[in-house]
Design a protein around this nucleic acid. Structure first.
Length: 567
RNA sequence: UGGGCCGUCGACUAAUGGUAGGUCAAGUGCCUUUGGAGCACUUUGUCUAGGUUCGAAUCCUAGCGGCCCAGCCA
């Protein structure tokens, strides 16, 4: 038997790494890192970086560190580092080393002094307002700061006093002496250190000065002997600076490689704006199931496997594309279809009375737990005279192409009997509140001995045995493909979808769900995938009451047909 | 109008000078005790104009279009 054709390395990152391994660069060693700033929760965009950093290293027998880029104490918090660790683990990855940029503050400080001594860095007294003026513009070169040519001794003295905490915030900075006329703004004497009398979540008050990203990231990579430092495209302009510090310091030459961020339709990926949604109460926290955060998706019922498959399928390049949300949902359905247990649940109950079914009889019907997985077995579902079906599954006047229950029409109750609608009971508003049916006792289990067919099978629950549940049905958080697309002077919050959350308070579930664990994922037959929300544990006052989140709806061909008929 | 990066089906992504392929979406049919799933089939693409070459999505030139950069954020 011949082996399957060798799959070609399928993206440019893998090609670069494969080439380096091939040429025995760094002895064939591969070391990567995932470097989040702990200033928010991880989102699906980070999942791409995580899959790349960990996945590629793993493919080449390499290692991956988790490193917190905690150089700005004002926005960072321990809550975020804990959530990040949790999310990386949940996604299915294990880091080799766990580091913090703040671990390197001492070393970074020494390196800054080294650069000062070499005449490559200087203390600048320009104010925060003056610095940008001296920097020039996109089209005009900058000009040197009047403090640029201070002596090494003066710079050393000033920098040591900065470190000692003698100066107020913002009064001075340490800058690299490079080239104020460089076409790359990042090379116009970039700031290396700023004065910040702020308490750091790990180093406390030991440092009144903090290194900037550019003076911390490359060196941190270098200290960890990172061979391939992958980051997103907007850092491409920083690469010359990344290399400059490494070269001036003569340290391990980590290499930065940029790739495109993941963008999704109907999804906001800016951490700043996500934080705004949380702080303004537009959503119920970072883990609101409508959020694109990993914690939100976890709560929504997305699986790590589905997210990984999606990220892999979406691929990586250097273009600025937007992936359709439908693609993510496809991989969520694909995974859940294989693994989620099937159950029957009625979201909007309509009472059905089977007039010719014995009053006090209860039958236990056999139901398949997962048609995709015979090993999942079967379960018993109670059947009785009074049932609930979905309101959508009955129409007094059925439109063309409608196969479900309507007066005189016979349909199959899943795992039950064939029933025929006979009459309806209406309320004062003329709404159908009860449907009276008859059943054919010879069709138990769903087959007619005479071989007659029905066009539709609908789900149901026994009214006497059903348990109550609250079901939260989600739509996209934003009603525009691009949430940032707003009119002049507008704000992205205008694009928030007012229908993104619908709470159904009185859904009816088959009794087996009474013991569904928090986080448990199910397919409600014909409706979609749902999972048990953590809020269910607060239901002590109402034993058996559950809260479910709709993860994603099933593909609905009838809905599509109906929509088309309307238009 | 400085510099950097990038333009392949509706979306994402392969093809590394030699058959433009895959996934999602869309559509058609089959099947079905979920109008689910599955199976089969179909539609649509190399930004434009030149050039090099036996041969160009790929290399060159010019244009056009998009994204990023002027934080003491990352």
């Amino acid at each position: 038997m011949s082996a399957a054709p060798e799959p070609r390395p399928s993206n440019f990152l893998r090609d670069i790494i494969a080439e380096d391994v091939e040429s025995n660069k760094h002895g064939g060693r591969v070391q990567t890192r995932f470097p989040p700033e702990p200033n928010g929760y991880l989102h699906i965009g980070h999942a791409k970086a995580i899959c790349l950093d960990f996945g590629l290293a793993d493919e080449f027998g390499g290692h991956t560190n988790l490193r917190f880029d905690d150089t700005n104490p004002e926005r960072e918090d321990l809550e975020y580092v804990e959530s990040i660790k949790n999310d990386v683990n949940w996604l299915g990855f294990k880091w080799d080393g766990l580091y913090y940029a703040s671990d390197y503050f001492g070393q970074l400080y020494e390196w800054a002094i080294e650069l000062i001594k070499a005449g490559k860095a200087y203390v600048d007294d320009l104010t925060a307002e003056e610095v940008p003026k001296y920097r020039g513009s996109l089209t005009e070169p900058g000009k040197n700061s009047p403090y640029r040519n201070r002596s090494v001794e003066e710079n050393l003295n000033l920098f040591e006093r900065m470190r000692a905490g003698e100066f107020p915030d913002g009064s001075r900075v340490l800058r690299a002496k490079i080239d104020m006329s460089s076409p790359n703004l990042n090379m116009r004497d970039p700031v290396m250190y700023r004065i910040l009398h702020a308490e750091h979540h790990r180093t406390g008050n030991t440092w009144p000065i903090y290194p900037m990203y550019d003076f911390a990231h490359g060196q941190s990579d270098s200290l960890e002997k990172v061979t391939h430092s992958m980051c997103s495209l907007e850092f491409a302009d920083h690469q010359p600076l990344y290399n400059w510090f490494i070269e001036q310091l003569g340290i391990f030459p980590s290499r930065q490689i940029e790739f495109d961020r993941l963008s999704l339709t109907y999804t906001m990926m800016s951490k700043r704006k996500l934080r705004q949604l949380v702080e303004e109460g537009r959503v119920n926290g970072w883990d609101d199931p409508r959020m694109p955060t990993l914690s939100g998706m976890r709560r929504r019922g997305y699986t790590p496997e589905a997210i990984r498959n999606f990220v892999k399928a979406a691929g990586v390049s250097r273009t600025n594309g937007i992936v359709e949300l439908a693609m993510l949902e496809h991989f969520v359905r694909e995974d859940l279809n294989k693994n989620a247990l099937r159950v029957m649940a009625v979201l909007r109950p309509l009472k059905i009375v089977i007039d010719n079914y014995p009053e006090n009889q209860v039958e236990e019907m056999d139901a398949v737990n997962n048609p995709e997985d015979p090993s999942a077995g079967t379960r018993k579902v109670p059947f009785s005279r009074v049932l609930y079906i979905e309101q959508d599954d009955f129409r007094e006047e059925p439109p063309k192409g409608y196969f479900r229950l309507s007066p005189g029409r016979e349909v199959r109750l899943r795992y039950g009997y064939f029933i025929t609608a006979k009459s309806v009971v209406k309320n004062d508003d003329g709404e159908v509140v009860e449907v009276h049916c008859t059943y054919d006792p010879t069709t138990r289990g769903g087959n007619a001995p005479d071989g007659r067919k029905v066009k539709s099978t609908i789900h149901w629950v026994s009214a006497a045995h059903a348990i109550d549940a609250e079901v939260r049905v989600y739509e996209t958080l934003f009603s525009k493909e691009n949430p940032d697309e707003v009119d002049e002077g507008g704000d992205f919050t205008e694009n928030l979808n007012p229908l993104s959350l619908e709470v159904i308070a009185n859904a009816k579930l088959e009794p087996s769900l009474a013991k569904a664990p928090v986080g448990g994922r199910y397919q409600f037959e014909r409706l979609g995938y749902f999972c048990v929300d953590p809020d269910s544990v607060d239901q002590d006052s109402k034993p058996g009451k559950r809260v479910f989140n709709r993860t994603v709806a099933l593909k609905d061909t009838w809905a599509k047909v109906e929509k088309k008929q309307k238009s």
